[in-house]
Amino acid sequence: MARLFALLAFLLLLGSCSAHGPSSQLLNVSYDPTRELFRDIDAAFARDWREKTGKAMTVGMSHGGSGKQARSVAEGLPADVVTLALAYDVDMLADRGLVSKDWQKRFPYNASPYTSTIVFVVRKGNPKQIHDWPDLIRPGVSVITPNPRTSGGARWNFLAAWGYARRLPGGSDESARDYMAQLFRHVPVLDTGARGATNTFAQRGIGDVLIAWESEALLARKSIGDDKIQIVIPSVSILAEPPVAVVDANVDIHGTRKAAEAYLAFLYSPEGQEIGASHFYRPRLPEVAARHKGEFPDVNTFTIADIAGNWKAAQKKFFADGGLFDQVGPGRGDKP
C-alpha cells in the first residue's frame, strides 16, 4: 500500500511537471512503425551523449498514427523532437508556430535522415504472380492497403500507385484516376493504420497482396517468417522520406535545444545510419548505403515533388474531404 501511495505521489508530481521535463530527458514523438528503430537509436544516442558531454540523457518515446501524433504535439504534448511519417504533419506544426518554417532546411536531405519506398508483400511462392502495378488490378486479385485518410503511411501507398499510373507514357490525370478507381475496387478491407493492414494480411489471411513501406515489409518478413510471405519490388515506386524536426517552441522552454539537435544529428551519423539500415530504413550516407547495397535493391523512384509539387497540394487534391480518394475509393457501389 505504501508503495502505491509513493507511486501515486510520484506520478502526480510527474504529471504536474511534464510540461517542463528535466533537461536530461528528451521526448521523441514518433509514428507507429518506428518503435524498434528508436529503441536502438535511443540507447546508442544516450551512450554517445555521455561520451561527449559526460551527462546522462534518456529519451522518452511516444508512438501512434503520424497525424494523431502531430495533433497531440499541437495540443500540448511536450515533444522535443518529432519524427513522423510525412512532411505534411510537420508543416501543420510549423503553421501553428511550434516548429520553425524552414525546418526542412535545418537538417540534410530535406530533414529526412533515411528513406524507404513502397513495395508489395505477397504470399509465399507468389501464387497470384504479382510483379508490378498492373498486376494489382487483374481480376481475382485482392489488395490490402490502409485508409489513406487515417494512415499517413497509406498516403505514400496511394501516391506510389498514382505516380506509377500518372507517369506511364501517355498517362494523364484521367488515366491515373481510372487506375486508382480500379485498384480500390480490389480492396476488401481498409484498416485505419499500416500495422493493422499488415496484421489483416498476415494474421487473418485476407488478400493476395499487401502494399507497404519497404521497411515494414522487411520487418514483417522477419517477424512473421519468410516461409509465409515474400517481397516483390515493383518496376517503379515512390521515394518515401519520413521527416524529422526539432519542436522549437518546446525545446526553448525545456532548455533541451542542444540535446534535441544532437539527437537528430545522430540519426545522420554513421552509427545512426547503420542502426537505421539494420531496421530496414534505407540509409542516406553514401558509405553506409554502399555497405547495405545487397539488402536494398535498386528501385526506380520518383518523389512527391515529381507528381504533386508538395504535401499541401497532394493533401488537398487527393486526401481532403471530397478529394480524389473520396471520389474513387472503395465503396462506390460497385462490388469488388
Partner: peptide, 17 residues
Amino acid sequence: GNIPRLSEITPLLIVEK
C-alpha cells in the same frame, strides 16, 4: 472492413476529420 458507404461507422468518420 471500414469500406466507405458499406461498413464505415460514424466514429471512424470523426477520426478522419
